[in-house]
Design a protein around this nucleic acid. Structure first.
Lengths: 355, 355
DNA sequence: TTGTATGCGTTATCAG
DNA sequence: CTGATAACGCATACAA
């Protein structure tokens, strides 16, 4: 790997000149500039980003922390963030935050954050308050933080409006007995987790949509379930076994799933039990992961516009990075902002019925 | 962020003492050790990995480069690699390599490689030969490299054996007219891409299995198709429209898909056209991504053991890293090794039929 | 047993 | 317009 010094030697100038020229400082003779650029080209020179961040505190890399690398929703977001970052001349690295809370929290902060100018956190089991201790003053954008007193900038999905739209849609295709699958049971260890918070938003959206139709959401229609293919498949089995779905007078004829993973698992679970979707029970998910368009039946969902999501997240993050680096003694920090991503209702086979 | 110096000050020793103590050097008084450790603890000290790799050339981070962040197979591998790395006390960062070949090749080498001790490459559109120019002497393991003269250590899926097992399975459930979907058309720009190479292995496996049954694989039964949900869905439409599947005497009654993404897309495509899987055409994929177990019908596949894959990849990489750092004048480099991951045949509904 | 000095590759300050 | 020089935070040979 060629270094600054190698380039300098070859161009017959000093290392500092190379550094300036390569970063576009205008005050050099065209001749010098050309010589330096050619030397850099010939040697295939690229700045060492570790050295750069060490010295300058910036290197143009954005860290993206996701809950799981093999889970569709966060990775779809990570892909959108990477696309958007690339367009802005930034790079991204992705790290996983799952596993032991303590250990991963630490590794996250001590690995990812050191390599980059700023961080974007996709929802995990740790809350913003917890992470705060581990983060230096690194600029940071949190995804799906609905805390009343936000600690960081955030981008959120329209959880309330999306859930409301989903349930309205279920009602509009003729469902009357609507249940919710995938509500997270409150966890004793960290009751205030981000996950719970946006679950509550989605529940509130459901409740509102039902209220509009003069219906309520009894608590036994809110079914807890981990956000996982297998768990949701088994949850569907339990609904079928209990006789709550299917038959002439089912207790549930429409199911709002908290996310698409749950919807896919449930759909498969119903198929196992001979419950037909949408004929016996209509199904709608949340997120808009690509896979929902290719299942049988295809699954209706609240399709988040991840391009828009990524754009907003990077707007926020870049602004923080800029203001962190600017020497303007504007020590007064801007208060955390919260932006909401766009969404559309994707109507697919799983809600295709007229009653 | 607390630095080494902060800890030293607090513990009343020199920075170098802190460095030694924290990394477990035994030659210090218990008293000193305790003082240093407590100071580090209190300050929440963590070594700056950029500084560490700059100075020492190692920081315990492994880079994983994948073709796409939102594609199931590479992410399942990345997740397995991360799990395995964590168990060995290593961290991983993931970067995407897709997009413009030139640009991404460069960003890959100039971002990911600088932060870590070694790299693991999941298949992309660039060949090992091409990457070689961009890589310094960074230890590297390539996934799915079937080149005759390998340039790097590699782990590969059992492409030949897997395809063979898949086609044998199709034959064993009564298929007689087997086609292959997802063979990549040769690309003029880089004919020797890694992708083409392992496609060929899989084709050879099919051919062999058919030959065992006295059958051949005519070239019009090898159907090119990008590895993408939508493209494979449309490919299925074309097969149905051409009357090659379905009906009393179909030209194709069993389909080996080059990977699970293609299998899922095709399965959906057949559903669009009223072609029943497996009754009209049996279907089997390759990779064993989690989603195939939850589609309707569930899709049989060659399930790669990604835990085994990850273990082998890290064994190779760690060995290279060790030998690169060891000062032993063992300048003679070990020749590239190639390890094969285990697999199992997952029999699911898409091949469940008796003829 | 501990501390000092040096350098990894870069950027920023300041002098020339 | 250009070039020394000093950090950034850490690891390590070597001196004490």
């Amino acid at each position: 790997m060629a270094t600054l010094r190698d380039v300098a030697e070859r161009a017959g100038v000093s290392p500092s000149t190379v550094s300036y020229v390569l970063r576009g400082d205008p005050r050099f003779q065209p001749d010098t500039v050309a010589r330096v650029q050619r030397a850099a080209e010939e040697l295939g020179y690229a700045a060492n980003l570790s050295a750069r961040i060490l010295k300058a505190g910036r290197n143009g890399v954005i860290g993206v922390a996701v809950y799981g690398l093999a889970i569709c929703q966060p990775m779809q977001l990570a892909a959108a963030l990477t696309r958007e970052a690339t367009e802005r001349g930034l790079n991204t690295i992705v790290q996983q935050t799952v596993n032991s809370r303590e250990g991963e929290l630490r590794s996250l902060e001590q690995v990812t954050s050191q390599f980059c100018d700023g961080l974007i956190f996709s929802p995990s089991s740790v809350s913003p308050a917890e992470i705060k201790a581990f983060v230096g003053s690194k600029p940071m954008v949190w995804c799906e933080d609905f805390a009343a007193e936000p600690l960081f900038d955030a981008v959120v999905t329209p959880s309330f409006e999306g859930a409301q739209a989903a349930v309205r849609h279920l009602l509009s295709v003729g469902c009357h007995r609507i249940a919710v699958l995938g509500a997270n049971p409150p966890r004793p260890d960290h009751a205030d987790s981000s996950n719970t918070a946006f679950c509550n938003q989605r529940l509130a959206g459901c409740t509102m949509a039902l209220a509009e139709a003069g219906l309520s959401l009894p608590s036994d229609s809110v079914i807890p379930c981990p956000w996982d293919y297998e768990d949701s498949r088994l949850a569907a089995h339990r609904l079928a076994d209990a006789g709550l779905v299917g038959g002439d007078n089912p207790a549930i004829d429409g199911l709002f799933c908290m996310n698409d993973t749950v919807a896919m698992g449930a759909s498969r679970g119903f198929a196992d039990c001979g419950i037909r979707v949408p004929d016996d029970v209509a199904l709608i998910g949340f997120d808009g992961i690509a896979e929902t368009a290719y299942t049988v039946p295809s699954i209706s969902t609240i399709a988040i516009d991840y391009g828009d999501y990524a754009r907003k997240a990077l707007d926020l993050l870049v602004a923080r990075i800029e203001s962190a680096t600017s020497k303007g003694a504007a020590t007064l920090v801007a208060p955390p902002q919260r932006l909401v991503a766009n969404f559309t209702l994707a109507q697919r086979e799983s809600t295709h019925l007229v009653r």
